[in-house]
C-alpha cells in the first residue's frame, strides 16, 4: 500500500504520469468535439476516459479507476459504438451552420464555462491538504468503498440501482412489440379472406415469355389476347420494344 500512503504528496512518477496523460486527455476531449465522423468522436472520448481511469489509479483510487475503464470504456462506449455502427459508417455531421455565428458563440461560451469551473475548483482546493486518506484506505481501498456503500450510503445506492433498473425495463417495454395471439390469423380466416368475393385467389400471372423477349417487363397475354398489367412488377415502367430490338438479329440461317 505504499502508493496509497504517499498519495498526499506528488511523487515524480505521479507528476510524469500526469504530464503525459493530461495533454492526451485534453486532446481526446477536443478531438471528440472536432471529429466529423461519429465513430472517431467516440474513439477520442475513449482516449479521454482511459486517461481519467489512470488518473484515478494514480490518485490512490485503484478500484474506481478500474471500474471507470471496465464500465465506461468497456461497456458504455462499446454500446455507443454498437449504435453508431448500426447507423452507418459514413454518417458524418454536416458542417453547415443553421444559426449565424453559432460556432463562434459556442466556442466563446464553452471557454467561459471552462474558465469559470477552473477558477472555482482552483480557488476551492488550492492550499487544501488532503487528509484522512490513510484512514479511509486502512482496510484496503475496495473494502473501504464497500463499507461506505453498504452502510452510510446504502439508501442512495439502492435508489440509484432501482432507477437504473426502471430505466432499463422501461426501455425494453417501449422497444418490445407485443402482438397478442388473437391478432394472428388462423388457417380458416386466411382462407376466407383469400376466397372472399372480389379477390382473385390464384397466383398472379407471370410475365410473358415470348420468342422476341423474355424480360420481366413484358406483360403476360390473357386467354382473350389482352395484356395483363398485373403480371409485371409495379415499379417497372411498361416498355414497348423498339423496332431495332424486334428486327431479326441475323443469327438465324
Amino acid at each position: 500500500m505504499t502508493n496509497i500512503a504517499l498519495a498526499a504528496t506528488v511523487t515524480t512518477g505521479e507528476a510524469v504520469t500526469f504530464w503525459i496523460l493530461a495533454p492526451l486527455a485534453l486532446l481526446g476531449a477536443i478531438g471528440m468535439v472536432a471529429a466529423r465522423n461519429a465513430v472517431h468522436s467516440a474513439l477520442w472520448l475513449v482516449l479521454t476516459m482511459l486517461s481519467l481511469g489512470v488518473f484515478y489509479v494514480v490518485q490512490a483510487g485503484p478500484f474506481i479507476g478500474m471500474v471507470q475503464i471496465i464500465v465506461y470504456t468497456g461497456a458504455i462506449m462499446m454500446l455507443f459504438l454498437f449504435v453508431l455502427m448500426l447507423v452507418g459508417r459514413d454518417a458524418s455531421d454536416s458542417l453547415i451552420e443553421t444559426l449565424r455565428g453559432q460556432r463562434v458563440a459556442a466556442v466563446l461560451v464553452g471557454l467561459g464555462f471552462a474558465g469559470l469551473v477552473g477558477t472555482l475548483v482552483a480557488r476551492a482546493v488550492s492550499g487544501t491538504e488532503a487528509v484522512g486518506l490513510d484512514a479511509a484506505n486502512r482496510d484496503g481501498n475496495v473494502q473501504g468503498i464497500a463499507a461506505l456503500l453498504f452502510t452510510n450510503y446504502v439508501f442512495a445506492f439502492e435508489a440509484t440501482s432501482a432507477l437504473l433498473i426502471t430505466a432499463a425495463v422501461g426501455a425494453m417495454v417501449l422497444a418490445h412489440i407485443h402482438k397478442p395471439k388473437s391478432e394472428k390469423l388462423g388457417q380458416p380466416e386466411t382462407m376466407r379472406l383469400r376466397f372472399r368475393p372480389g379477390n382473385y385467389p390464384a397466383p398472379k400471372p407471370g410475365p410473358g415469355v415470348y420468342a422476341t423477349s423474355d424480360s420481366v417487363a413484358t406483360p403476360a397475354r390473357l386467354p382473350d389476347g389482352t395484356l395483363s398489367q398485373r403480371s409485371i412488377p409495379e415499379i417497372l415502367p411498361t416498355r414497348e420494344l423498339s423496332s431495332r430490338e424486334t428486327a431479326p438479329k441475323g443469327t438465324e440461317k
Binding site: 481511469g53 478500484f63 478500474m66 471496465i70 468497456g74
Partner: peptide, 21 residues
C-alpha cells in the same frame, strides 16, 4: 496490484475494441 483481477477484466474489455474497430 490490489485490484489485479479487475485490471485483467479491464484490458480484456479494451481488447474488444480491436475486433469491433
Amino acid at each position: 496490484i490490489s485490484v489485479a483481477v479487475l485490471l485483467i477484466l479491464a484490458v480484456s474489455s479494451m481488447g474488444i475494441y480491436g475486433i469491433v474497430l
